[in-house]
Design a binder for these strands. Structure first.
Lengths: 155, 155
DNA sequence: CTTTATTGGTTTCGATCGTAACCGTCAGTT
DNA sequence: AACTGACGGTTACGATCGAAACCAATAAAG
């Protein structure tokens, strides 16, 4: 595994921004996932769905997908899984029967509050591990991506 | 989709660091993937494998996995796919016949150089879109993660 | 030596994923 | 009214994934 030098044609993967970014994101996500997986056997789409409903109180599947950037099939499956555990209930819209409003049940809210607390603690720990300045720079870098790379919200 | 306020129990997913990080990484990766997917019908594991062999010249499957953080089954499948296209060749180690040294064939090297070039252009464009300071802060944030979160190389 | 453990790499298998097709509902056109 | 297209959400299906079992080869222990 001797690295070749003296050539302008090689690319250093470990210094390549898209690779570094994805690797870092997967490492952080993997660590965080341990918390909700171990605790309630949830998948990431389920955690995101729960978190989004918990944040907004009442929301539709389509809006969940937009807000948490998940494919609609993922949302559909996560909603069904959460429903099966009786952590959410559906309510069909009175005026447009295609739409389902989703809300957490009381037990669902309890789980949500628990996981929201765990999430905040995790984030604080993470910031502490990265150091205040490192975390702040990461935040600014992500903001740059969000401001410059994400498609304009259609209007 | 009215957001609830006045409660300390809710978590804002869109401001939650692990979520922002993963979303940003997936967006960047998705954009970059368009280049090698459209051009040579490659998957991400195949691109990473090609990139790693191209960078080191001769390397084993295990080392590829370590360097590019891929599961060994992913590497195994990617190697087979690249071999089928005759972009790499295997050479069994003389002293330890479990080990296979992997090298790019001449056509494999051609593809590699082409993709390495595309990667560099993509990265430059990305930095330009983020702005020099945004890109620099992202770089520093990722460095903080790499320095503080990755498991120590055993030794 | 023979036995046992470990290692590099592959395969199997169940789980998850996204594309595309689909279903029921609504809105617009005629 | 009937037709057409768009939309919210689900399902079918093939592709991809990783954990675990596996295989052949080496290393370690006796």
């Amino acid at each position: 595994m001797q690295e070749r030098t003296g050539s302008t044609t090689i690319l250093h993967l470990e210094a390549f921004l898209p690779y570094r970014l994805l690797r870092a994101a997967e490492e952080v996500s993997r660590r965080f996932a341990r918390h909700y997986k171990n605790r309630h056997g949830m998948t990431r789409p389920e955690w995101r769905t729960l978190a989004t409903i918990g944040q907004f109180g009442s929301i539709t599947a389509k809006q969940i997908g937009e807000h948490s950037s998940m494919h609609k099939t993922k949302v559909s499956r996560a909603v069904r899984a959460l429903e099966k555990r009786r952590w959410l209930k559906r309510r069909t819209d009175d005026l447009d029967r295609r739409i389902e409003h989703l809300e957490l049940t009381p037990p669902g809210k309890t789980i949500y509050r628990e996981l929201a607390y765990i999430a905040r603690v995790f984030e604080q720990d993470l910031v502490e591990q990265l150091g205040k300045s490192g975390a702040h720079r990461l935040d600014e870098g992500l903001t740059a991506i969000e401001n410059n790379l994400y498609p304009e919200p259609r209007r």
